[in-house]
Design a protein around this nucleic acid. Structure first.
Lengths: 144, 144
DNA sequence: CTGAATCCATATGGATACTG
DNA sequence: CAGTATCCATATGGATTCAG
């Protein structure tokens, strides 16, 4: 059939992190997506929309906390472009715009849950590591 | 016993994304960690160290690809501070420095695997969404 | 080889003001 | 209300140079 050798056959194998892709384009896309998702505001927007369901623009901002209007707009637009949220404009005055997660967005939220959890579970270890590192650095500085 | 109410009791419940933490400090740390991990170079460094085991400084850079020496140093130092990698200096000339993942680093790599996989599996959907979004934008621009 | 230090271009993001 | 547009400060990151 197709002459392209299927290296891993199925996506269910879960290789370490990245398989030997040999496809730079796909690799770049994956990285871009991850980088985008990892963005602070995207992550938080994902959170509040997952937790509270459909929300108005201003409400999303309130729930996120200290996001500027500019970044909120940018973030939500990006998420819309990537198909993570749907933006619904109600042609009323004053304007009413609602955002809600798509299945894709929810799936991403779930996928990210693992990382979130890891961070929560190991927060103490990380804090301890940072402290130890600082002290090693301080000791080295003194030992000059 | 302790007077602090245990809200979720166990970490095995996997709430949507963030539980109602009510602990802004923890929340901030978690976000910082995630943000750091999500960093482009950290992620790639995690990858190559997971795949290839202990590596020398230059070798990590080669495997990552186009990272500058400055960013590689910064990334690895940060990972060391967070306890994700161990940096071993061999006092020889020329210098030989090896980096290898800790258990913490490997755990993170695994946790991130879910996101990686999500991105791989939905790359086509995302690409399609972006295209559709662009076309909607173009159509709207014309319809002015 | 493994960095540290510097210069510099660009990206990021907040504050503010304005619009429909 | 839900943005857009602008100004501006800072952060980021590449290129280059120097050093142990």
């Amino acid at each position: 059939m197709d002459s392209v050798t299927e290296i891993s056959g199925s996506a269910l194998e879960l290789p370490g992190l990245s398989p030997a892709n040999a496809d730079p384009e796909l690799d770049a896309l994956v990285r871009e997506i991850i980088g985008r998702v990892a963005d602070k505001w995207t992550m938080l927007a994902l959170e509040v929309l997952e937790e509270h369901g459909p929300l108005r623009f201003t409400r999303v901002g309130e729930l996120i906390g200290d996001v500027s209007q500019k970044m909120l707009t940018k973030t939500l637009r990006q998420m819309e472009a990537d198909g993570l949220v749907v933006r619904t404009v109600f042609p009323v005055i004053p304007p009413r715009v609602e955002y809600h997660l798509t299945d894709l967005g929810r799936g991403l939220s779930e996928a990210f849950c693992g990382v979130w959890h890891w961070a929560e579970q190991h927060r103490d270890t990380i804090k301890a590591s940072r402290l130890a590192f600082q002290e090693r650095a301080a000791a080295a500085a003194q030992g000059d």
